[in-house]
């Protein structure tokens, strides 16, 4: 199975830059999903709260990593309004598990898989002459 797009390393321009508030860059960035997972543990909780509630994480995951499923999961996490250490733990768990699944299978176990279609051919019975 080919490697998922979400596992590739991005250019500096497309990396995620962690801020603590408007215009205040904390000096941490992530240019891949793997790096992003590590940074969730490193950056200040204030930064995670700032970006989660602005919708920055889900936007970056959808636009730069091109993974709409993970973006949706992050959006769902946001709607449960976690804060503080709970937010860090849950975000880390969500993204690290998703990333591990992608590495193993090329797609997340929880991702939507289009069912294989089967073609049924109708065979007309031979007509018999009376």
């Amino acid at each position: 199975m080919s490697e998922s797009k979400a596992l590739r390393t991005l250019s500096r321009e497309k990396a995620f830059y962690f801020f603590t508030s408007i215009g205040n860059y904390a000096g941490e960035s992530a240019a891949s999903l793997e790096e992003f997972v590590k940074k969730i543990l490193d950056v200040k909780i204030k930064s995670l709260e700032f970006h989660l509630y602005r919708g920055d994480f889900e936007r970056w995951v959808a636009d730069a990593l091109e993974d709409n499923i993970l973006a949706k999961k992050i959006r769902e996490l946001k709607s449960s309004k976690p804060i503080g250490i709970d937010l860090r733990d849950r975000l880390y768990l969500l993204v690290s598990k998703y990333s591990e699944d992608l590495k193993k299978t090329g797609s997340s176990s929880t991702s939507f898989v289009k069912p294989r279609t089967t073609t049924v051919t109708f065979v007309r019975p031979k007509e018999t002459t009376p």
Partner: peptide, 26 residues
Amino acid sequence: DQESLHAFISNVVAPLPGVLRIRTAI
């Protein structure tokens, strides 16, 4: 506005090689 200021700093300034941190006062 604040959003376009943040977008400029986030998309243009932070990615410049050699930038370590940014503090902004409006």
